[in-house]
Amino acid sequence: MATARKDMAETAASRSNVYGLLAAVFRAEPSAAFLAQVKSSEFANVLESLDLSLGDDFQDTPCDQLVEGLAVEYTRLFIGPGPRISPHESTNIEFENPMEGTLWGPQTVKVKKFIEAAGLAYDELFDGMPDHVSAELEFMQRLATKEAEAWEERNEEFATNILKIEERFLDEHLSLWISRFCDKVIEHSEHPFYQGFAEVTKGFLEYEGKSLQAFNSGTGNGRGFPD
């Protein structure tokens, strides 16, 4: 049991890492320091193992230059003018009634209330809508971190509870729209960087959905996660 708990703690911490990274990718234009880390051999190897490329010249282009190009691309993609892919749940989720799907719509409120019900507040300086993709990813990051702590503290009931909440947030929110959003980014981006991270995001969330469902329903291997 101790091993299983340790595994669970490690898994949760790991998931938190990926959420954290993806939240950062969509929160804002990448900084030079961020890009330097993404260029690191460790990250490059992972991308290679996933059969993903951030562009043929990504490694060779100086970070400063990448920063400028990616900032323009980020603006084009998510801020506008440009294809302007609205990075919000309320505008991407498919509703029976499209009137629900307005910017800062009823769905946004649901996300906001969900997150606030977890005791979190939106940072005063956060200027996105409450259902911005990066806020939702960050929320999952926070939940997974808390979950890892719970496992570490041997508070299994709490940890399991959090897992259920994670699954619920995925089911009710993130999973409902993330792949649609990522597909738009893949289609409209003119830069492999965002196409690549959109692929990672999509792939990771699919994996997450399966994993959490497996755990919470008690299927999968003894650790609750499929191999």
């Binding site: 911490a13 790991s14 998931r15 890492n17 990926v18 954290g20 990274l21 993806l22 939240a23 950062a24 929160r27 804002a28 900084s31 320091a33 961020f34 330097a36 880390q37 993404v38 690191s40 460790e42 990250f43 190897n45 992972v46 193992s49 996933l50 997150i115 979190l120 507040a121 939106y122 940072d123 005063e124 300086l125 956060f126 996105g128 911005h132 990066s134 806020a135 960050e138 929320f139 926070r142 990672v200 990771f204």
Partner: peptide
Amino acid sequence: SLSAASGAVLAAGAVDSRPALA
């Protein structure tokens, strides 16, 4: 391995944007 690499990026303090949630 994705997680480990992601953790490294985060740990390096390379993410300088503010969190959305407090």
